[in-house]
Design a protein around this nucleic acid. Structure first.
Lengths: 158, 158
DNA sequence: TGTAATTGCTACAGCAACTGTAGGTTCAAG
DNA sequence: CTTGAACCTACAGTTGCTGTAGCAATTACA
């Protein structure tokens, strides 16, 4: 059969890199697929769906742990969706917090750049502001949230 | 001398963790300090200033590489501050991009949560939306920017 | 002065979430 | 039948730290 779902085809279908798919298998996020006679992974459409789900949730900033929870919820369609709702709300809160922080960073950076007269380093407002938080007007100080890295861009065959 | 600048004191003065200070030394971001007879690091006030600079820049989202550049610029006060300006502008652009992305994530998450009727998983809008990007109204897809992790919160002695 | 708590030291492992590489095997097309 | 693409495993590297183990040195208190 020439048209079985090999990892490369799944990669294209889901926009996940080949290594990423193997990584997700390693950490148990997707079930291990069957292997062909030559030891190649042969996937089913359910794998593709699962990977699309993961990819989309990553794009929306969910952590792999959150995704793991969402996946195990979606595996039990008869349960209440309260838990899924809670995870999404959590995610929303985190996104809102990050936006707030970035807004104040933006304010500081704009001020910093605006005030730079373009002379010598010794008079540079950028360097000066960085040297001393007292120059700042916002409290851009964080309390330790871990920002997940966004999914890498559209993969292309080079 | 009982009041020399040991790493612990510098840690308190700069709000950087002890390990972080040693890490910055390892990667060459701060110069190696002298050692006491008992092999302890003894810092000078210039170290404290440099660490404050680093810490503040990290809080404003600069990467360690960007900070490295800024530091080497600030070591040459007679040069033009064009380069420092450029780094700050770069940083501003990245922050703006991140805000834009997060705004669209926020939109999606809100829609997702709002439309969830609170029934069973099989009818859950959250799960459904995650399964299929076609449900989305924004193009929340990223092009591979690496989001630096924010500086961890105020360190306290427990 | 003795001792216990604290602080310091090095060296290394681990975190998230991948990405890339080396060195090999298998498959599909011409 | 050969060639090149795709696949395999295993592991190292990325960023920016944080934590641990197992010591040595210092400081505080009785």
């Amino acid at each position: 059969m020439p048209s079985s779902l090999t990892i490369g085809r799944v990669s294209k279908a889901t926009d996940c890199k080949v290594q990423t798919i193997r990584y997700y298998e390693d950490i148990g996020l997707i079930p291990k697929p069957d292997r062909s006679v030559g030891n190649q992974r042969i996937y089913e459409t359910s794998h593709v769906e699962r990977l699309r789900f993961i990819r989309h949730a990553r794009e929306l900033g969910f952590s792999l742990n959150a995704i793991r929870d969402l996946l195990s919820l979606s595996d039990q369609p008869q349960q209440s969706c309260e838990a899924a709702d809670a995870i999404a709300r959590q995610q929303l809160i985190q996104v809102e917090q990050r936006i707030g922080l970035l807004q104040s960073l933006k304010t500081e950076l704009e001020r910093m750049i605006e005030q730079c007269s373009g002379g010598k380093i010794s008079d540079c407002r950028v360097i000066e502001v960085l040297s001393d938080h007292e120059h700042c007007i916002t409290e851009h100080r964080e309390t330790g949230t871990v920002v997940p890295r966004p999914v890498s861009g559209t993969q292309s065959v080079p």
